[in-house]
Simulated scan of single mutants.
Amino acid sequence: MDKFNELVSTQMQTMEKLLYLQSELERCQEIEKQLDALKQSAELEDLRMEIDRKKLDLKEIHQMFEKQTEEVIHTYQQLAVSYR
């Protein structure tokens, strides 16, 4: 059961990172709209690069979260079998 709890805890930390990055991405995209409206191309290009980095980070964390979910399910299934 300790392994299961540890996996769930790790997954919750990953979820926090995922949510944080998602909110940061949304914030950057809002700034992007504002800069585009103001036609500030230099700042806009820098921001678009940051958005691309955040999207990549978000994708990586999402993949990690999916893998952790599979591991949590597998561990839970093993625990369920051992308690029968």
Rank of each mutant, 00 (worst) to 15 (best):
M1T: 14
M1Q: 13
D2C: 03
D2E: 13
D2W: 08
K3V: 12
F4P: 00
F4G: 00
F4W: 06
N5L: 15
N5Y: 14
N5G: 08
E6W: 09
S9K: 15
S9R: 14
T10V: 12
T10Q: 15
T10E: 15
T14Y: 07
T14D: 06
T14V: 15
M15P: 00
E16N: 13
L18S: 02
L18T: 04
L19Y: 13
L19C: 08
Y20F: 11
Y20T: 11
L21I: 09
S23G: 06
L25C: 04
E26N: 11
R27T: 07
R27Q: 08
Q29Y: 05
Q29C: 03
E30C: 02
E32P: 00
K33S: 10
Q34T: 10
Q34N: 05
L35E: 01
L35D: 01
A37N: 11
Q40A: 12
S41F: 08
A42S: 11
A42M: 07
L44P: 04
L44C: 08
L44R: 09
E45A: 12
E45Y: 08
E50I: 07
I51F: 02
R53V: 04
K54D: 02
K54C: 02
K54W: 00
K55H: 04
K55C: 04
K55M: 07
D57W: 04
D57L: 05
D57V: 00
E60Q: 13
I61Q: 01
H62F: 11
Q63T: 12
M64W: 05
M64R: 15
F65E: 05
F65H: 15
E66I: 15
Q68W: 08
T69R: 14
E71M: 10
E71T: 12
I73H: 10
H74E: 11
H74L: 12
H74S: 13
T75D: 02
Q77D: 02
Q77R: 08
A80I: 04
